[in-house]
Amino acid sequence: MTTMSMIKALNEGLRRVLEDQPKSLVMGEDVGRLGGVFRVTDGLQKDFGSDRIIDTPLAESGIIGTAIGLALRGYRPICEIQFDGFVYPAFDQLVSQLAKIPNRSGGRVRLPVVVRIPYGGGIGAIEHHSESPEAYFAHTAGLKVVTCSNPNDAYWMIQQAAAGDDPVIFFEPKRRYHSKDDVDTESAGLDLYRARTLREGRTATLIAYGPTVDVAVNAAAAAAEEGTDLEVIDLRSLSPIDWEPLFASVRKTGRAVVVHEAPGNIGVGAEVAARLSEECFYSLESPVLRVTGYDVPYPASRLEDDYLPNLDRVLDAVDRSLEY
C-alpha cells in the first residue's frame, strides 16, 4: 500500500502498461518532453523513448485518426486529449471510426485504443477546460467509457483499459488529480466495468462517478450526522453501466439520487433514472432525482460553484426524495 496522488497513480499505471506491453505507446500534445500539462506522463519519454511516448502535432482528429492507423498496424496507443473541451475536433474519428471500424470489419479488426481525457470543472479554468462530455461517448456503441474517482482506481483502471481489445474513453476528474490516497499496487480488486458501493445505507442511494463521488461521500457523511443513512455507489463505468448493484441498492432503499457535473438533459443520470424506473418500479418510494450541472454552457469560473453539484444541493435532493 502506497500513498500517492491521482496524477502519480496514473503515471505509475501507465508505466506498468508500457513495461508489460511492448506494443503500447502514449501519444498526445505535450505528453513527451513536458510530461503533459498535468504531468500525468512525466518522465515517461525519458524512460521509454520518443518512439513510444510521442509528442504529436496539435490536432486532435489527427491524434485519434493516426492512433487508429497505428492500432491497425498492431500497436496499442494510449492517447491523451489535453482537455475535455478539445475533444470535439476528434469527434468523427472517435464516434464514426474508432467506435465503428471493428463492427464494420465483422469483428476481424480490433482497435485497442485508450483515449484519456481530463474532464470536469472546479479548477477555476477558462472556457473549454471544465466540461463533462461523457454522454456523447457513452451514447456511442463501440466505445466503452469509464472514469476513475480516486488514486487506486486510477492506477488500476488505466491498466485494465489498456489491457482490453476494445476502445476505451478514459475520463480523469481533473479537480481530483492532486487528491492523495492509498494505492494497493499488488491487487486490482475490481474489474474495470464494475460499479463500487462505497458506503452502505438503507435510506436512499446516491449514485455518482468521477469528480462527484467525493461530493456524494461527503454528503453521506453529513447526512449520517443528522441520522440519515445513505448508500453511495461509484459507477466507475458509464458504458457499459454495471446495473445489478444499482438495482439491488434501490430495491433496498427505495430512493435514488444521481449526481453528475454534466448537464442533466439527456445525460447519464437520465439513463440511470429510466432504467431504475423500468427495473425497480415497485420498489421505488419516490422518483429518481438528479443533481447535475444546469442545462447551460459551462459558466465563467466565478460561477462554477453555483453550477456544480455540491454537498448542499445533494442533501437538498435527498430531503426532497424523502419528503415525496
Partner: peptide, 15 residues
C-alpha cells in the same frame, strides 16, 4: 466519411 482514411493511413505508415 471523406478523408477519414487519410489519417488511418498516416498512422499506419508511422507504425
Amino acid at each position: 466519411v471523406i478523408a477519414s482514411q487519410t489519417l488511418h493511413a498516416a498512422g499506419y505508415a508511422m507504425g
